[in-house]
Every structure is written in C-alpha cells, then in structure tokens.
Design a protein around this nucleic acid. Structure first.
Length: 587
RNA sequence: GGUUCCGUAGCUCAAUGGAUAGAGCAUCUGCCUUCGAAGCAGAGGGUUGCAGGUUCGAGUCCUGCCGGGACCGCCA
C-alpha cells in the first residue's frame, strides 16, 4: 500500500465515522508545500452534499485525525482544506519499509492480469524511420511499466507485412526482371533458399515502387493485383514474400535492439492469415458483414454517434484484404492464445478512427472476450519548422541515422565537458551510446503522449536541465558517494528520523514512487514518470548540497543520510530502467 | 463542410475541478583549496487564444467564435 493510500484510508475512516462517504478522505500531496505535506479536500465536497458549513465539517474530521500519532500537524485552511504533516518518526518508519522492499513499493495493479501490447509496427522491406521511434519508445516503456506493476505482458511488434506495400515491391521486382523464376506461373520446382534481394536492395526498391505507384495509376493497379495474388496464395509470390520477411527481421531486430526495445512476439499481419477466411465466413453467416459497393464491410456506425463512422472494410472489391481485416483477426488470435484483460495499441494518433472501427467490429462480433480494447495514440515528432521531421535533404530520416546522430552529439558533449577522455575507447563509446539513447528516449517520453513535439538534438543531449543525460549524471554521482563511503568502511542504515527540510522532502518524494507508477499506468503516460524522476533528481541535489555526508561528524546521522542516498539511487535506477535508460558505471 | 485533438512565460513543455498556474532553456545576481559546479541559492518574465455559462471554486467541465494539426470506404 502506498503512503497516499494509507493516509486516504485513515482520513476516509474519519469521514465515514461522521457519516460521510469514505472516498471523500482522498489525500493528495499538498499544492502548497510551504503550508503542509499533504491535503484533503473532501470536506468541501461533503459540505456541499450535506448543505453544511465546510469549515465545520473539516473541524469534525480534523478532531478525529488529531488523535492519530502518525500526524504531527492537522490544520484547517482556506475554505475547508485539511492540511496534514506526518511525524518524522512516521516518515523514517515508512522509509525503512521501502528500503527493505525489493520492489521499492511498486504498486501491484496488474497482478493476475494479462495485457497484450501492440507497438513497433515496422514494415517489412521498408527501412525504419523516425516515424517508428515514438511507437517503439512509448510502447517499450509501457511494457516495462506494466511488468513492474505486476502485469503479465505479451508484447507484439505486429509487423506490416501483408498489405499493398508487398504488392508494390513484388511488382517492382517483376518489372525489373531481378528474379524471374518467382514470376513464372508454370514453374513447379523448388525455389532458391537464398533471397534474391538484400536489405539494401529493398531500401532502394520500395521507395522507387511507391513513387511509381503514386505517379501512375496503372502501375498502382499492378501493385494491387500482385497484393491480391499474394494473399490468394500464388506460390512464387509467397516464397518471395518469405524472403522479404527473413531479410527484414534481422535488420529490424538490430535497430529495435539499439534502442533497447524488445518484443515477446514477432508476429505480423500475415500471422493471422489462416484465421481470415473462417472469420469472414463467420461474419457473413451471422449477417454482420455485408456487400457494399463491391466490397465486404462491417457497418459499425451507432445511432448515438455524433461523427460519421464509416464501415470497416474487410475485403476490397479486388479481393484483397486490408489491415483492418488483419487487425480484427489478430484480436481473435490474441484472445485465444493469451486471454488478455487488455489489448493496448500504441500507434500514431492519426489512426484513432481506424481503431474505433476495429474495436466496434470486434465487440459486435463478440471476438474480444474479456479484453478491454484501447488505443493509446501519440503525436508526431516534428522538425524545427513544426512539420513532421525530415532530413536536411527533405527525405525521411532513417532510425539508424538518427541514433548515429544522437551518439555523435553525445560524444561531442562529453568532449566539451572533458569527461571520459582518459577512459578506454570501448567504454567511452559505450558511454556515448548510452547518453545518446537516454537523450532520445527521455525527450520523447517526457512530452505528453498525444501532443506533437519538436525534435531538437542539441537540446536533448544537454547535460544541464531536464534531460536524460542529467539524470544519468545524477545517478553516477550518487554511486560515487556510495563508493567513497564503502571505501571508508561505512555501512548505511536508517538510524534516525529526518530533522531537516531537505531530508523530509527527499523522503516524501521517495515514498511517492508508487503513485507515479500507478498514475503513469492509469493514463498510459510515461511523462508522469519523467516528471517524477526529474523532480527526484532535483530534490536530491538540494539534499546533497545542504548536507555534506563524508565530513559529517555525527555517525548515526551520517549513516542515515547514506541510506537515503542508497534509497534514492535505487528509486532513480528503477524509474530509469522503466524508461529504458541505462546508467553507465562512471562518466 | 463534418468529426476530433490542440492553443499556457521570449522558446520547449507540465499542471486527478482546488489555495499564490509550475519546470527546463534563455536573461540577470550570488556560490567551487570539502562527497563529481553536468550542480545549488535567488531575480525578472502570465488577462492560460477570445466571449459567455455551470460551480463555494475553472488552465481543466459546457456553448459559441478565432487560429493550427489530424481524420473523414476500398493505403498503413
């Protein structure tokens, strides 16, 4: 139980004893730290409901709370706020509990529950670009957070491998005559085991095919036909397609890995191919899917809709299926194999309507089981001009190049600061890489999920201010103190209660970890964790400046403060790990 | 045109219906012969796009308007 839950329970009991709903006892950190540590606003609501004087209600509640030794102060302020301070003894007791808990008080919100997280969404045969960055980073952080909160998580990269881009690529290869054997409809023998194209080839072929289809409707028609044939099972196309998938996966694994992103499943749209036919039969048989303008659709509009809700298209008039079809079949697959309580899609906000359609269709057909279906959308990463990020040449920047840029920039900053200059080259490169990734990840995660943000590498890689590198530095500094103490033979221990404002503020922030983790989960909002951890680092810096530990003469005080440093490092490391930020041993 | 998200300090961004709207950057003033100054202490900077409404209380909820992004049946 978190501190806030504990306090809310105590205050809630006081409300209940006065005949009010106990929910009114909700306690929150004070908006006015100069006045109190915590506050409860329930007396205002209670007074409204009972048509009573709010201060009078607050007085009754406060009278009951004053009897509880956990509080050192119970005051009524303003229109009826109840302000609370904890006794120093209560604070240190709760710190001891936290320090002894290997989970550091992480909430158990997800125990016994399973969540499928769908993020990544890279496309086979297309290079990963900056557009894939946010899904990967936000999704990965949510999977780490959900696991930390006790959820059983199944993450799925859900590759884009069954749509029109496959037909575009196949027809491009056919036109160029690169591998004619796959296009011979009469060929009966074995196909080569070796892929006719490399990843580099694909990176050149796809943009060319895409541009050609855009420019020429007939060319697009060809791509559509190839897509439909692939899906219909044309042998040569299938084998060729498998080559694309194999070649791509190796590259994608490396790119996601360089960001620290891992997936449990490398499924794709095509993984549910065998479910699509039966699903369509089922939907037709039950009258849920109907013909419309030559296509097969599921109407998902509802009478209460304010907005126009187009039907979900299952099968195009040319016989090919779309990603809405595979998304729907994927729900069936996930419900069968994982039995999830939640399926969370971390995908671009622009696809919100699409997911609304798919979710409605799934519920209508009864495919979603007990799973709550939810789209956690996010905004775009923009360039300095406020438009989606492009390279200087105006093209789409590859993720690989972006990471290289960040690492290079981080290295430049290390040189400027004269840091790590005398370290072995391997270690130095490793530090630059960790700092670069930290800069990228923290910048992306700290802006609110649904809003767009401006990409500014120089700002992200700074060591000052609200950045990933600053947090790494803070952690390294804490470790440095602990190392010094260890060399001096000091063993940290929470011997005495806090006695200074810096100590109390630090303890309160440490005890607030479960609330940050629960809040971030509830809102699917990593920026809550970023706020929390940056604030923790700042509070620690004040503590560190105010109290010089190694020269402290009072041994009990010294060991207690060392224990606070150790606890802070523990909490900081835990949150950074959730954010996917690695802390170097030294910098 | 319809729907939807957004509009907060010079810039980049926060703020479960609560008290005096907060951080970082930038600007200015102090603090390194003591644990890593990538830091700390302090200052200036705001009619929360505009106008109404609900509420004891609104950046937050409702209505209208202004401005921007996104989406609106066979792309993903």
């Amino acid at each position: 139980m978190s501190l806030l839950e504990e306090l809310s329970g105590i205050v809630g009991a006081a409300f209940a004893a006065e005949g009010f709903p106990s929910e009114l006892g909700t306690v929150q950190p004070s908006d006015r730290p100069d006045l109190a540590q915590f506050q409860c606003n329930g007396a205002l609501t209670a007074a409204k409901q009972a048509k009573a004087n709010p201060r009078a209600v607050a007085e009754k509640i406060a009278a009951r709370l004053k009897a509880n030794p956990v509080f050192s102060k119970v005051e009524i302020a303003g229109p009826g706020f109840i302000n609370l301070d904890l006794s120093d003894e209560s604070l240190v007791e709760r710190m001891r509990t936290l320090a002894a808990d290997e989970r550091l008080g992480a909430p158990r919100k997800g125990e016994g529950k399973t969540a499928v997280l769908d993020f990544g969404g890279a496309n086979v045969a297309k290079p990963m670009h900056v557009g894939h960055l946010r899904s990967a980073i936000i999704g990965d952080t949510l999977q780490r957070l959900f696991r930390a909160n006790g959820w059983n998580v199944v993450s799925d990269v859900h590759l884009g491998d069954w749509g029109l881009q496959m037909g575009q690529l196949i027809s491009e290869i056919g036109r160029r005559g690169i591998a004619p054997i796959y296009f011979d409809p009469h060929y009966q023998g074995e196909y080569p085991a070796q892929s006719p194209v490399t990843m580099d080839d694909l990176e050149e072929l796809y943009p060319a095919a895409s541009a050609a289809c855009k420019a020429d409707p007939k060319r697009l028609e060809e791509a559509r036909a190839a897509t439909a044939e692939l899906q219909a099972g044309r042998a040569g196309y299938r084998v060729l397609w498998q080559h694309f998938v194999n070649v791509s996966e190796a590259g994608l694994t490396r790119e996601y890995g360089s960001l620290g992103v891992r997936f449990d499943l490398w499924n794709g749209e095509a993984s549910v191919e065998c479910l699509i036919g039966p699903m369509i039969q089922d939907l037709k048989a039950r009258g849920l899917a109907t013909e419309s303008e030559g296509a097969l659709v599921i109407p998902v509009a509802e009478p209460a809709d304010k907005k126009e809700m187009p039907p979900l298209i299952l099968v195009k008039s040319d016989g090919a299926v779309l990603y809405g079809t595979t998304d729907l079949a994927t729900i069936i697959d996930r419900v069968r194999t994982s039995g999830p309580d939640l399926i969370l899609y971390v995908v671009d906000q622009r696809q919100h309507t699409h997911f609304e359609q798919v979710f409605r269709a799934a519920r209508k057909a009864g495919y979603s089981g007990k799973a709550q279906l939810e789209h956690a959308g996010f905004g775009t990463m923009n360039g300095p001009d406020g438009k989606p990020f492009k390279t200087r040449a105006g093209g789409v920047m590859k993720l690989y190049d972006l990471i290289a840029m960040a690492t290079e920039e981080a290295d430049k900053r290390l040189v400027e600061a004269g840091l790590a200059t005398e370290y072995p080259e391997d270690e130095r490169n490793d530090i630059a890489r960790k700092v670069g990734i930290a800069a990228l990840r923290f910048a992306d995660l700290s802006s609110h999920r649904v809003s767009d943000y401006v990409f500014d590498l120089a700002r992200f890689t700074r060591f000052e201010g609200r950045t990933g590198p600053y947090l790494q530095y803070a952690a390294v500094r804490m470790r440095s103190i602990l190392n010094k103490a260890e060399e001096a033979g000091l063993e940290s221990a929470l011997k005495v209660a806090p006695s200074t404002p810096e100590e109390r503020t630090l303890i309160l922030q440490l005890l607030a970890l479960p609330n940050a983790m629960a809040g971030a989960e509830h809102n699917r909002a990593p920026n809550i964790l970023c706020d929390y951890v940056f604030s923790l680092a700042q509070i620690f810096s004040r503590f560190y400046t105010a109290h010089h530990i190694m020269s402290e003469q009072n041994r009990a005080l010294q060991l207690t403060r060392l224990a606070l440093v150790a606890a802070t490092l523990g909490v900081l490391s835990k949150v950074l790990a959730i954010l996917g930020i690695e802390v170097p041993a030294r910098m």
